[in-house]
């Protein structure tokens, strides 16, 4: 039961984006299309899982004082792996994600989970936490990217769903930088309203 809790924590109750607001930079920058969002989500999930596993495996070996530099080296290693694999097998995605791939290193979600979870818990729990948080991040990105792509280009995953007339004259602002900030504000407000309803019902 507690293993299930470790796994599902990241979906909603501790969603890294909407609840604890970590990892905003790639989230805002790459939610312009669902394709980019899923690619980034997959990359972050991979790094999150394996850095969690490596750190929880070695949690009794790493001296406490230099733990943060150690974590950063682990994370940077996995990020370099993702970078090279993506450059080899998905060059167009690699190009679209660009500078935000090396920047996964400084994504607060990953260091945050290492510090707050992986260095205190077993390997199994940490693995599940990594998978869960990764899915939570990917779901959040997919949600935001769906809103932005549908509004901003009238398509979803490159498929035209609002008709050609809309695609010719979309709300371009949604996929420009300001759209990311404004829409994020409204999505967070929606979450706040949902929470308040729940509290009142309980």
């Amino acid at each position: 039961m507690s293993l299930w809790k470790d796994f599902s924590n990241g979906f909603y109750t501790e969603n890294p984006i909407f609840r604890i607001s970590l990892g905003m930079c790639p989230f805002l920058a790459l939610s312009t299309s669902v394709q980019n969002a899923l690619g980034m989500g997959a990359a972050v999930t991979f790094v999150l899982i394996w850095s969690n596993v490596a750190i929880s495996t070695l949690r009794n070996v790493i001296p406490d004082k230099i733990r943060i530099p150690c974590y950063i080296v682990f994370i940077a290693t996995f990020v370099s792996l993702v970078d090279m694999v993506m450059a080899a097998y998905a060059p167009s995605l690699h190009k679209a994600l660009g500078i935000y791939i090396p920047l996964i290193v400084v994504n607060c979600i990953i260091l945050g989970r290492a510090e707050a979870f992986a260095n205190k818990n077993t390997v199994t729990s940490s693995f599940l936490d990594g998978v869960g948080m990764g899915i939570g991040f990917t779901l959040a990105m997919a949600l935001m990217a769906s809103i932005r792509e549908i509004l901003g280009s009238g398509t979803w995953y490159g498929i035209n769903i609002l008709g050609q007339a809309y695609a010719d004259q979309p709300v371009l602002m949604a996929i420009l930088p300001p759209g990311a900030f404004v829409l994020m504000g409204f999505v967070l407000a929606a979450f706040a309203v949902i929470d308040r309803r729940k509290e009142r019902a309980a």
Partner: peptide, 8 residues
């Protein structure tokens, strides 16, 4: 939320 909209 309002901070994000302000940033927007």
């Amino acid at each position: 939320p309002i901070t994000f909209i302000l940033a927007g």
